[in-house]
Design a protein around this nucleic acid. Structure first.
Lengths: 122, 122
DNA sequence: TTTTCATATGAACGATTGTTCAAGTGTTCA
DNA sequence: TGAACACTTGAACAATCGTTCATATGAAAA
C-alpha cells in the first residue's frame, strides 16, 4: 500500500474513468508545452502588467507615459516591460531618447478579453 | 523636477499621445476589474494547475486519479484544487468517499486554447 | 464501534516575485 | 564636450507561492 506522502500510486477508489485516465496520460502534451503555457499565463497574472497591456492596447506609449498613467516609478515599469517583452507580448522601437512600446500581436487583446468574459459572467 | 524614485509626474518627452493617454486614464476599468483579471490569470500561471485543468477537460476525475496522473501527492493536488475552486475554474461533487472534480464552465478550455494558440504560432 | 480509505487543512520550509534604490547606458541639445 | 533626459539594469528587500509533513474530517466497510 502506498504511504500517503509519496508521489501517488494508483488509488483504490472505484475506477470509473480508468480507461479515460490512461488516454489522458498518453495525450497530454509532452515536454514543455504545458509548462510554456503556464509561463505565458504567469506573465498575465500581475495587475501592473495587466494595466500596462491595457494601456498599450489603446495606444503605443513611451515608458514615462506608462509610469505617469499608472502612478509608478519608471524603474518598476521598465522591469515589467522587460518581462512582457521576453514573453513576446510587447515590442518596442526607439525614437531618439524615447522608447515606444506597443502590443506585439493581437492575440494579447484576445486573451485579455477572454479573461474578462469569464470574470464578468457570473 | 520630479526626483527619479517617486511615483512619476508627467515626463518631459515629446507628448505625441497626450490626448490618448488622457482617454486611456478615463476609460481604464475602475476599482477591482483589472485586479480580478490579473488574479484569474495568476491561477492559470502554474504548470501543476494547468495540467490539472488539462486532465479535467478530458474527464471528470477524483483527486487520487489526478495525483496518480501527475505523479504528485494527494495533498499537493488537493491544495491546488482548492485554488482552482475558489477561482471558479473547477467544481466538485461527492460520491461516497470519493470527490469528483470537473471544469466549472467551458470558458476554461477556451482560455487554455487561446494561450496555446499564442505559444504555437511563432 | 473501530478500522480503513479518500480527501482536506494548517504550519513550516525554501523558492520565486515585484518593487525600490543606486548606478549604469544611450541619445539629444547647448 | 558636458549637462540633461529617457530608459535600463543589478542587488536587496519584504511578501507571496507551492510543496511537504502531520494531522483532521467524512464516509463506508468490517
Amino acid at each position: 500500500m502506498a504511504s500517503r506522502n509519496q508521489p501517488a500510486e494508483r488509488c483504490d477508489c472505484e475506477v470509473i474513468h480508468g480507461t479515460i485516465v490512461s488516454q489522458v496520460m498518453n495525450e497530454m502534451p509532452q515536454g514543455n508545452a504545458l509548462y510554456d503555457l503556464a509561463e505565458l499565463f504567469r506573465v498575465f497574472g500581475d495587475s501592473t502588467r495587466i494595466r500596462i497591456l491595457w494601456a498599450l492596447d489603446a495606444a503605443e506609449m513611451c515608458v514615462c507615459d506608462i509610469a505617469y498613467l499608472l502612478n509608478m516609478t519608471q524603474s518598476a515599469i521598465s522591469h515589467q516591460l522587460r518581462v512582457l517583452k521576453q514573453a513576446k507580448l510587447v515590442k518596442n522601437r526607439r525614437d531618439g531618447k524615447v522608447v515606444f512600446y506597443s502590443l506585439d500581436d493581437n492575440h494579447v487583446k484576445q486573451i485579455l478579453d477572454q479573461g474578462l468574459t469569464h470574470i464578468t459572467e457570473e
